[in-house]
């Protein structure tokens, strides 16, 4: 029995993340228990941990800190548990975000979260809608077990107005283009993170969750 903890900090639709993981598990014919929880012990004991997230980063970080999940995230990552951050759950792994007039994040990765609005303004890009919403191509920048059976430049579903910029570009696992090229995947050791929503990305997304369940956190 494999257990997957989907960290529940009261923000957004965790139902679809849990359902997609269950679906991926069925396709692998493995026995997986998905726990949607913020219980520290259950997260620490899980074989795989997912940090999802939708909504505004300040509210997300507020709840993550209030529930003490910040320390738990640091602990499970240090322990080598395969860890997946999704959307705001990816952005939360950087040091800070421009959203909500500046928000301190978890600092798992050195780097920042910027807004499309200000970058578009700097680059005089006027005709692109925000949020970046819909199916965009994901260019794989590294070989990684999480990309198993997913074709390069496969389309995934995005909805976000901010994007991550890690200091160390070696950690970029994937990029997409929306006016300019930006980071949509991060990878280091047992941590993987995506700006897109695998749980809403049909076959490619379910494959990514299946890969996550099969991944032991090593490269």
């Amino acid at each position: 029995m494999t257990t997957v903890a989907v960290i529940d900090y009261g923000m957004g639709n965790l139902h679809s993340v849990a359902k997609a993981i269950e679906h991926a598990s069925e396709s692998l014919q493995t026995n997986t228990q998905v726990l949607v929880t913020h219980d520290h012990d259950r997260i620490l004991a899980a074989d795989h941990v997912v940090l999802p997230g939708v909504g505004a980063i300040r509210d997300c970080m507020g709840e993550i800190n209030r529930l003490g999940v910040d320390k738990i995230v640091h602990q499970v990552i240090a322990a080598g548990t395969p860890f997946l951050g999704v959307c705001v759950g990816m952005q939360a792994l950087l040091e800070n975000s421009d959203e909500n007039d500046g928000t301190e994040c978890l600092g798992i990765f050195n780097g920042h979260v910027h807004s499309f609005a200000s970058t578009f303004k700097e680059q005089s890009l006027t005709d692109l809608k925000i949020p970046h919403m819909g199916w965009n191509q994901v260019k794989q920048r590294i070989d990684h077990p999480m990309w198993h059976n997913i074709s390069d430049c496969a389309r995934f579903y995005f909805v976000h107005s901010y994007y991550t910029q890690p200091d160390d570009t070696q950690l970029i696992a994937a990029t997409s283009e929306y006016g300019f090229e930006f980071c949509v995947g991060l990878a280091r050791d047992n941590v993987f993170a995506t700006q897109f929503h695998p749980e809403k990305s049909q076959h490619a997304g379910l494959q990514l969750y299946a890969n996550f369940l099969s991944w032991n956190g090593k490269l």
Binding site: G134, N136, Q137, R155, E177
Partner: peptide, 8 residues
């Protein structure tokens, strides 16, 4: 390589 138009 860019964002696809959606059919709903």
């Amino acid at each position: 390589m860019s964002l696809a138009k959606r059919i709903i």
